[in-house]
Amino acid sequence: MNAQSSASSGFPIAPLFALDTLWFQVAGTLCNLECTHCFISCSPTNHAHEMLTLADVKRHLREAEALGVKEYYFTGGEPFMNHEIFEILEETLCQGPVSVLTNGVLIRADTAARLKRLSDASEYSLDIRISIDGWNAATNDPIRGAGTFERILGGVRALASAGLNPVITVTEACEGAATQDGRTRFFDFLRSIGLPQPRLKIMPLLRIGAEEQRLRAYESWETLKGRELTPDEAGVLQCTGCRMVTSKGVYVCPILIDAPDAKMGETLGETARPFTLSHQACFTCHETGFSCRT
């Protein structure tokens, strides 16, 4: 879809100002959990996107270096299911700061110690971001799976013991998380489990993938059709500064990897062009100003 036909379609167009944030769908859509709100429906059997190999990542890192990428994010699926994840992180940390989005349940003492060594060996920051959906099992487990609350906390504690301070990510599936009271409650909870400098990221729900079945899909009015994008609004949208590499190619952002028309090319260079905000998830980014980055 080119800019011309996009304009006639009535959806606003997001330019790529600079490729600052490069995402890797390093575990594909394969996950050891099956969260009911997952916007890309990850599960142990979802092969829509396969794992990336070290060679895949290296190829894109070379291009990213030439393009002056500022930061790297790894997600899935569950990144620690990828057998090459440590080599991938080590390679990437030579080139820039790294964030890993994980559910934390595979992080044990040896994993955490290894991550701390990788972090210490780099001049850049390594951030581990762990998703949890409540202050207790009663709120978290119905979303992330039976018994996951305690297993997630195990991962958090392992990181804390190793000297890493994860960012805790909570979606608004956890009711009240985004309110001031909810945030305060989370900060207190995180201090109580051994994180003296608690770090928190609250994410809005994306009403695609599994979330369509859990709560609801987007309503027809939740669209950017007919809307215009001011320069300030464009600057806030993550797709004006990011791209996502999966086993199938390079996509506009980490959210739309199940949308065939969100694939923009095979190389990063091919994706250095505007994107039409025709997807309903674009509505959430626009309305909330949120970004998947920390």
């Binding site: 030439a66 990428v69 500022k70 930061e71 820039g96 700061p97 850049y124």
Partner: peptide, 23 residues
Amino acid sequence: PRKINEFLWETTTPRPFIEKLLS
């Protein structure tokens, strides 16, 4: 140089990005 309120921190401002800004 590209944004008055962009944070350039030591551990998140990598060399390839610096080269791009300079260029």
